[in-house]
Simulated assay, not measured.
Amino acid sequence: MITFGLIINPLAGIGGAVGLKGSDGMAAEAFRRGAEKKAMQRSEQALQCLLEQQHNCRFLSCPGEMGEQLLTAMGFSVSLVDIKLPSSGVTCAADTREAARQMADAGVDVLIFAGGDGTARDILQALEQAGRSDIPVLGIPAGVKIHSAVYGVTPQASGEVLRALVSGKLVDIKESEVRDLDEEAFRQDRVVARHFGELQVPQLGHFVQAVKQGGVESEELVLADIAAYIREMMEDDEDVLYLIGSGKTTQAVMQELQLDNTLLGVDAVFQQQLVGQDLSEQGILALLDQYPRARAVLSVMGGQGHIIGRGNQQFSPQVLKRLGKKNVCLISSKSKLTALAGRPLTIDSGDCQLDKQWSGTIQVITGYRDQVVQNLR
């Protein structure tokens, strides 16, 4: 019988779809903008993989939305740590750290958490202070920033790792990085990342993601070629709205157009003129109502291969359904694709059915009139 510790950060990821680029300290503003909690839903997607193995596992979790509510609804055996959550229902980092400390003291076999890089830092700190850095930890990706290498590539992938553990399969354990960004700098389009330490993470095939690769793209000529091709497409399609996603690869397109760029947000271009900046999900949907034809220009996240679900949650399932897969222009240098070492590209929209519908293959623009075909899951 395996005992899992489960901690859900209910506020994880609420800033993404509304364009806040993070959730730390931004709950009130996120809710004011119409944000919805999604961490419990993503946790359920992961735990679905354990339903057939309920008799072989049990949980130590937290009251209410931090775990008890979901586990009880799914029929798992659950005991609770001794923490009292705020009457407001708004949890904080201290709640996560105290829960992790108690789970470490109780000797859970594996600690599972749903959150982002800030939650990973809290787990790391708690285990270090408890002297239990040896406990295996696996993250369910639910935050805006997922740079650390302690998560499954999708919630379902995290669940597959857990199912393998419960089924008695051989699962490797690897020391993996916890990294996080300075969110204030992040909101000002400055990427300031730090390494905070390592956690012991169970590994199974390509189900666990690599650390997000930072740094400036060095292949300036390749990016210039890609940007020139996108500009040519815009000239040929004067009635199409272009939604330019986040990142340094897509930034090259905006530089080619000589337009202001939100490095870590979504901008909108029509007839090579800026018509929207740093858009939220609702801002994108409003423009899609205004412009019947639209395309999104997205890049591949270096080291991980995600095209949706990492730092660009403004492209929500509702937005993606409006656009359609055929209207996504994916751009990347070939060196970035080669560095994936055969791993497929990943879509993690939060809508399992949509992810399944979009899986298969996708074309990636890698230069001027130069494209390759990649697997997408």
Rank of each mutant, 00 (worst) to 15 (best):
183 E>K: 01
182 D>L: 00
235 E>K: 09
211 V>M: 11
198 E>S: 09
220 E>I: 06
224 A>N: 14
196 F>H: 06
209 Q>R: 14
256 E>C: 09
225 D>H: 12
248 K>F: 06
243 L>Q: 01
215 G>L: 10
214 G>Y: 00
190 R>Y: 07
209 Q>K: 10
210 A>H: 10
209 Q>M: 15
209 Q>P: 05
250 T>P: 00
214 G>F: 01
210 A>N: 15
185 A>G: 04
190 R>S: 12
235 E>V: 12
226 I>K: 02
233 M>K: 11
255 Q>E: 14
248 K>A: 11
223 L>N: 02
255 Q>F: 03
258 Q>A: 11
252 A>G: 07
212 K>L: 15
223 L>V: 06
250 T>R: 01
187 R>H: 06
235 E>M: 09
237 D>Q: 14
238 E>G: 13
234 M>D: 05
218 S>P: 15
232 E>W: 13
190 R>N: 09
206 H>K: 08
256 E>I: 05
206 H>A: 08
203 Q>E: 14
244 I>V: 13
208 V>K: 00
181 L>C: 03
253 V>Y: 00
189 D>Q: 02
257 L>M: 06
191 V>C: 08
205 G>Q: 13
186 F>Q: 03
193 A>E: 06
202 P>I: 03
187 R>G: 04
230 I>W: 00
207 F>Q: 13
228 A>W: 04
220 E>M: 08
209 Q>A: 11
249 T>E: 07
220 E>R: 10
249 T>A: 14
223 L>D: 02
256 E>Q: 14
253 V>Q: 03
194 R>V: 09
227 A>H: 03
210 A>Y: 06
213 Q>S: 09
232 E>D: 12
212 K>F: 15
227 A>W: 00
183 E>P: 12
237 D>K: 07
209 Q>D: 08
203 Q>A: 10
244 I>G: 00
186 F>K: 01
193 A>N: 04
192 V>M: 08
242 Y>D: 03
225 D>K: 09
211 V>N: 04
199 L>P: 01
194 R>S: 14
257 L>A: 05
241 L>P: 02
192 V>Y: 06
239 D>V: 14
247 G>A: 04
192 V>G: 05
209 Q>L: 13
218 S>F: 08
240 V>E: 06
257 L>H: 02
248 K>C: 06
241 L>G: 02
208 V>A: 02
224 A>V: 07
242 Y>S: 05
237 D>H: 12
